[in-house]
Design a protein around this nucleic acid. Structure first.
Lengths: 344, 344
DNA sequence: TTGAAAGCGATACCAT
DNA sequence: ATGGTATCGCTTTCAA
């Protein structure tokens, strides 16, 4: 009879106090440990709480204390065409655990990342006595000054390049790109191309270039692509078509900016009969489960989501908050797509 | 300077009232439309609100009214080994929009689906004046009686078979299984196997059997598998190994219980050199994006997530709540894995 | 160690 | 149309 029977009138602190034969304050003291309570009294209070099934009203508590003991996790709505984060679930689950350990609830809520909407959500959070916001950054930059003005502590996750005065963290994309490009070069390729965003200042682009230069090889073709599955597929088609126009195509290698993009590239290659890694070797970025179950398995750069999530909560809740950018190292995961023979 | 400068003391209704030269009540009337207000007065109030950047304190509002104007969306934590829902994001985003349209915020929060933990979360929601709970059901059954006792309206999403007296909804899995199995049979296969949970009462199992019986063909092999990517991979290996033990293997077809499972099956087939659909044809279930970018593209049964999410919010918030199970039809999506020649 | 009572900010009833 | 005020449930001085 879901919800059909109205719940019995909820017990309040007052009911507990009466039943235990003490004043309202003592109930508070007992439950929150804010003042010493005689053992016998405490016992009676606890018994009354138990008997009445009393749960403190969080709205009242929040009103009084100014804190809802709640953190908000703001993520890009999946209808945001530009960006959806494959780690979403993994982040949420670690953040939730970390928050809970510190006595906070975590509420996840999605939004388009239009600056005015993000700001509106921050205001809403403030009105709800939320204690801090974890922002899963998308591709859209945040108006940090405006957000700061709301007065809520916040920290940005998944950030590539720090901004002065804003607390943020993210994987060292540049170092990752160097690692992946270098790995492909070590397979003996004379050059390595890059499939990714058309932005020469993007860290993965930079890292790719650095690795090529360091190895003394020409930076193979750069293929501009939206960092999504369809974007990757489109890029893959372009690569495959150019290849088939070449009468004597040589083996090639590409570093692809994300697993999702690489899944699209792979799809395009399958459609065109390009073999991976024999004709074209691939390495990608993220270390999501899509990379594991793709065919062939994608060699990728695993982002340390758990560590980042832990740190995000810790930093958000720290009394002496720092407003710096924290960079995390990642880890190369070998699979078949790059040409590693034994790998999955 | 993120969060470094403490926000200016937040304006309260009282400040607004003073600035506008009216009483507290009039501010309330103006903002909520709960009583008629002279146009000129309203204008002054609104101006004061604007000037002070006033936002009603939601904790106070919730305390007073008993409602936080908030819905909770409870999802299985991704660490829950048994179940993670591929539609999670899509559900969340439609639910959020639907809730917002009706003036409610939606907070998503993950939990293991151990009965005591779900109950604890419900209690927490009640304590926070949450107005209703949307539960994304996992494989674990819910203790509906215990949840009802909390006194919060709730509805279960993603439910296969309704339970008496509980509000729920889900895709018609049986009908979907019939559609997919029949589709495979129409490709001329003499029999169709099933990869899925070892539970003869499960609707997809039932539908598969029904379709086979209706077509007068023997129900091909049943391969028990956990409905996950690794489970599918394992099942795929068993199928492939048995096939290679057969000196004259015939083409076969399998209906697979979910896209994720099918991705695992596909992976195993790739590893063993089994061609899809030439050697073995596949159709799966869900219609998630994994099915679209798999290779070959998976023919699948699309669940109408948007419609279900819309209905869930509407039913949860309806004044005359019904406690029935609502079944939604889905839709066959043709791709290459079943043998459809032209399809993606 | 315990109790009385003042608020936290908003709503709505009752007057005017 | 507008104002005064009790009230929601809890925390926290301050006194006893």
């Amino acid at each position: 009879m879901t919800g059909r029977t109205p719940a019995p009138r909820k017990a309040t602190r007052r009911d507990v106090a009466r039943l235990a034969g003490v004043s309202d304050a003592v109930v508070s003291y007992t439950l929150n440990g804010t003042a010493p309570v005689a053992a016998a009294t405490a016992e009676r209070v606890l018994a009354a709480v138990e008997q009445l099934g009393y749960r403190p009203n969080q709205a009242a508590r929040a009103l009084r204390s100014g804190s809802a003991d709640t953190l908000a996790f703001l993520v890009p709505s999946s209808s945001d065409p530009v960006f959806t984060n494959p780690f979403f679930g993994e982040y949420a689950s670690t953040l939730e655990a970390a928050a809970r350990d510190r006595g906070y609830a975590l509420y996840t809520t999605a939004t388009s990342f239009r600056p005015d909407e993000v700001l509106a959500r921050f205001r809403e959070f403030a009105a709800r006595q939320i204690d801090g916001v974890l922002v899963l950054a998308g591709s859209t930059p945040l108006d940090s000054a405006a957000l700061d003005r709301v007065g809520l502590p916040w920290i940005a996750l998944n950030v590539a390049t720090g901004e002065h005065g804003v607390a943020s963290l993210g994987t060292d994309l540049r170092a990752g790109a160097v690692a992946m490009t270098t790995h492909l070069l070590e397979h003996g390729h004379g050059s390595v191309g890059f499939v990714g965003q058309d932005d020469p200042s993007e860290p993965r682009y930079v890292g790719w270039l650095q690795a090529c230069t360091a190895a003394g090889v020409p930076a193979g073709p750069f293929i501009a692509a939206e960092v999504t599955r369809p974007g990757g597929r489109d890029a893959g088609h372009r690569i495959a078509d150019e290849r088939s126009a070449d009468p004597t195509p040589a083996p090639r290698a590409f570093f692809v900016a994300s697993d999702r993009t690489a899944v699209g590239v792979l799809r395009a290659f399958h459609e065109r009969g390009v073999r991976v890694p024999e004709d074209i070797a691939i390495a990608s970025f993220d270390g999501s489960s899509e990379a594991e179950y793709a065919w062939p398995g994608l060699t990728t750069f695993r982002q340390p989501i758990d560590e980042m999530a832990q740190s995000a909560v810790a930093r958000l809740l720290a009394t002496d908050r720092d407003h710096t950018h924290e960079l995390f190292p990642g880890e190369l995961v070998r699979r078949r797509s790059c040409g590693c023979p034994d790998a999955g």
